[in-house]
Structures are given as structure tokens and as C-alpha cells.
Amino acid sequence: MNAPFFKFGLFNDEVSLIVAVVIGIGFGFFLERAGFGSARKLAAQFYFTDMTVLKVMFTAIVTAMLGVYFLSVLGFVDLSLVYLTPTNLMPQVVGGLLLGFGFVIGGYCPGTSCVSAATGRTDGWVYLGGIVAGILVFGEAFPLIETFYNSTPMGQLTLAQLTGIPYGILVFAVVVMAIGAFMAADWGEKVMAAKKGGKA
């Protein structure tokens, strides 16, 4: 079999847009199921009282990572055709920090704010307005920051290429790390709950 299907021309652009809606529905559905329509639930991650964000995010990463890894090794997916966003380290570090600030101040990320807005949260809609404003500012400032935006280019780069450690070993390491993080998260939640209970 030849996958990714779209890259082998199994269907055209129009059909790909239908696929987009279906995949988006799945994405939105599970985000809402996880409770990510609520800013309080999302923000609780940063106060160690509810580590759902970490659990859901890393479970999703591990699931997709294992899936795409084994499908590639078995020859079902040509991984070189799966788009890998090029790395520009410094802008991504700074962008990540800004995004983290925005996350704890606003309570959402772009995907979850859509779900929050769809379930009727006013703050979700306002947050979306903020995103639009932020992108507009970025667009207007783009000529000034273009040099920084394109700085430290490293091309399409995987951790395996960077470190020289075989891809499979890194996959295993991520799984172990994730499970370790989940255990730590469960323990952290218990400690915080006990603390709160003790106070009350």
C-alpha cells in the first residue's frame, strides 16, 4: 500500500478538504471529551492540581508516534512524504515562551479555544479575537522581525538526526519518559489534593 494517500495522488484537492473537515471533527471531539473546552481545567495544569493536559498531550504524541513509526517500518507509510516543519531554533524557543505566557494568561491554546467557543464560552470567543489581533500584529511587524524569524535555520531535522541515536531507541525513550511523567503527574495530583484537603 502507498501512504500517505494524498501524496500518491489517490484523491484530489477537493476531496482533501472533505478529509480536513472529518479529521477536524475528530480533533475537536476528543479535545472536548478531554475537558479542554474549559480554561480552568487547562490552566490547572500549571498549578499541579489537574494534570490532564500533560496526560492527554503525551498520550496522543505516544500513540501517533508509535503508529506512524510502525507503519513506516512495515513499509505502509513513506515517512519522508509526511511533512516535517523545518526547525528554526531561536524563533521557536522565543515563540514557545510567548505561547506559554499566553497559555497561562488566557487559559487556552488555539485549538482548545475553538472548542471552548463552540461550546458557548465567552472567554473562548474573546480569546479567538485575541489570536486574530496577535497574528495581525505579527503580520504588520513581519518586515521588522523577518531576519529573526528566519534565523538559526536547521532545516527539516529529527531528534534522531540531531543526536545520532537510532530513531527506534528514541521512540522507546519517549514512551518511557511519558509513562514516568504520568506516574509523577498522578502523584503530584494526590499531593496537591491532600494539601487542599488539609487546608480546608
Partner: peptide
């Protein structure tokens, strides 16, 4: 705060070439 956070997120996501979903 939601508006402010959204603004930072929008700016940061563009600088980082993606957000929590894309990156």
C-alpha cells in the same frame, strides 16, 4: 486577560511556525 493571552498566543504561534497542535 483572555484577549491578552490570545494575542500573545497568536504572535508566539506565528513566530514558532505553529501552535500546540501544529508543533
Amino acid at each position: 486577560f483572555a484577549f491578552l493571552g490570545g494575542g500573545l498566543m497568536g504572535f508566539g504561534a506565528k513566530l514558532a511556525r505553529g501552535c500546540t497542535s501544529g508543533q
